[in-house]
Nucleic acid binder design. Structure first.
Lengths: 348, 348
DNA sequence: ATCGGGAACGCAGACGTTTGCGTGAAATGA
DNA sequence: TCATTTCACGCAAACGTCTGCGTTCCCGAT
């Protein structure tokens, strides 16, 4: 079965024999069952440590139904935001003794056979982080009673979700731009498939369009740098009078593309046109971009997401829940702002 | 145990009963054992499909010792190269009916408890993609007979590896730069901990330093954008006569940082100084950078890596193997080149 | 002296698959 | 026609852990 040479992995049975007790006692002792005497518990713990005992999770899963495995659907890695999210997820999950099984990574659609793997492995729950609205994995989970939590996404039926308050973020950015004297905004969105983008744009538009201020330009940048770049080129082509005086990109990566295109065409950012983004990805902090943006509270989002999932794994009948976390504006050099600190006060 | 309400998951036992045969027959029929008659096989397959049967991998693992899970150690996601790698890995693994369990992601060290999870879950093998030389996970695997394959890394003891021919890549870049008339090179390396960087630098130096050409500058850019930026600033400070006339960054991300810094300080790339990188990450193709680089054959590397691993899972006694794949230079605008197509000929 | 009641463990079945050995029956060869 | 294969399938023992029920022993309270 395993490697022929004589290493009979130490198991609970091995331990029970060398301790002269039953396997059930060993099992219970190892997980701190109060019905085992402290002395016995200590003795078994010592034995286990000495023998280098490693529990066989597969066996545990088979017996108890709990695998400690969480299915993970990851968004397009071309957006550094998901890289951030991934690292934070893995870190926090490990601290909770949970591991991720990757179901999918990338922009493409999820094949059925892939999504079903999630059932084969009896994952305890499933985490979906993808702005993409359609998700086969979520359906399969829902049909089979596997709790689903979405991070960075608006909840769908049969799923809990935690995301940043996208509308509020868009609104904050809009107020900042207005305070900086901008009245003609362009919006670089990411199509109808992205729930985040839709919310951000809604919040922005509502807060921006007061008085004479209006949205004078919209462009579908598809959540990729190239899309933003194309938008920037289009804007640069416009006659100076028609051009927006500021740009709201629903994600930093788009905004960065736009900035590069504008500059390549000879326009100055922020002197000729201001640009703000969303997400606060590390790349946006580089001096070359220094993009003003809205930071999503990634660590907190991950923590709440994992909490939500853990709760539903423990008690599957819990109702779906959507939590919105507040982010914060990060002011950098890519957008002109009002003189003095008027904004600081207004921001409260 | 599972959800109380009446859904008794269809198992092999269920199927065996409704088919009126033994469980062993069902098991064998489902996996195409030739000792089962075609008619029986068809009948059982139909039954399984109809009942929506899903094998319980945990039970299979317990019995057969093979989990179909591969442990994955991922490098720092701040380098987009690993994002590329991840997507390709997940895609190809899924096609082979294999899944990844994430052991670690990011730059930080791997905790022991994390690495041991890999034993708890009885992973069939382990894939390590990280330029970082030290790796706790590899040791643990080696000690427990779990095959290890490293991608994008020089092999260590007890591990197979597949990587791009880094030295050859460095050499190619060096010859390209020489052909472009450069004689004073600066090298932006990533410290002694990166086996890739070391090889790339070695190959570059050997090919570049002929005749009057020499390496006039070295800088540890730690594989991050900021490191490259710092290097660029340092170079811009140098008196014009002392400055290198070209820069070899052992990874694109470093080179991009350097380019931004040089330009911010008023130097022109490539007019004042040429810059070449390594990896061919998508970001480097952006018009703003257009960095000349060396493309690693990622898809092929992943394929060979998975092959290597599969072979060793099947036959653990196979000796370690190191495979080097040839990459190709990608010429863009960040480096001056010789007039005409002299290079094309010389490259062969 | 009897009884009720924890405390501390042991028994044994279950979880769902896999697999080494059978074992009848049909097919083959002489 | 009989011995020998080959075919197709069944038996049952793992795999390692969990857990619902006992069972024993010891104590303090009647």
């Amino acid at each position: 079965m395993t490697d022929a040479p004589g290493k009979p992995r130490t198991t609970i049975v091995t331990l029970s024999r060398s301790a002269g007790v039953s396997t059930s006692t060993v099992s219970r002792a190892l997980k701190g069952d109060p019905s085992i005497s402290p002395s016995m518990r200590a003795r078994i713990a010592a034995l286990a440590a000495e023998a280098g005992y490693m529990p066989n999770i597969m066996a545990r899963t088979l017996s108890s139904g709990r695998s400690g495995l969480i299915g993970l659907v990851l968004g397009a890695a071309s957006n550094p935001f998901y890289a951030m999210l991934l690292e934070e997820l893995v870190r926090q999950a490990a601290a909770r003794q949970q591991r991720f099984m990757i179901i999918h990574a990338g922009a493409g659609p999820i094949e059925d056979s892939t999504a079903e793997a999630l059932l084969h492995y009896r994952v305890d729950g499933c985490l979906i982080t993808s702005a993409d609205l359609s998700s086969r994995a979520a359906d399969i989970c829902a049909r089979n009673g596997v709790p689903v939590v979405m991070i960075n996404r608006i909840p769908r039926q049969h799923a809990s979700a935690v995301s940043c308050d996208n509308a509020e973020g868009g609104g904050t950015l809009a107020r900042f731009l207005r305070a900086g004297g901008h009245r003609r905004a362009g919006i670089l969105h990411s199509g109808a498939g992205s729930s985040n983008g839709i919310e951000r744009e809604r919040g922005f538009t509502e807060a921006f369009t007061r008085g004479a201020a209006r949205i004078v330009f919209r462009f579908d940048a598809r959540s990729v740098y190239e899309g933003g770049y194309a938008a920037g080129e289009a804007i640069a082509e416009m006659p100076a009078g028609k051009r927006p005086d500021c740009l709201f990109a629903v994600s930093d990566i788009i905004g960065m593309g736009a900035m590069d295109a504008l500059r390549a065409k000879g326009l100055r950012v922020p002197q000729d046109i201001s640009v703000v983004g969303f997400d606060c990805i590390p790349d946006g902090a580089r001096p070359h971009y220094a993009i003003t943006t809205f930071r999503q509270p990634v660590a907190a989002m991950v923590r709440r997401g994992l909490d939500l999932l853990a709760a539903r794994i423990g008690e599957p009948s819990l109702p779906d829940e959507a939590v919105l976390l507040r982010g914060e504006i990060v002011i950098r050099a890519s957008a002109r702002q009002a003189a003095g600190d008027a904004w600081d006060k207004a921001a409260g």
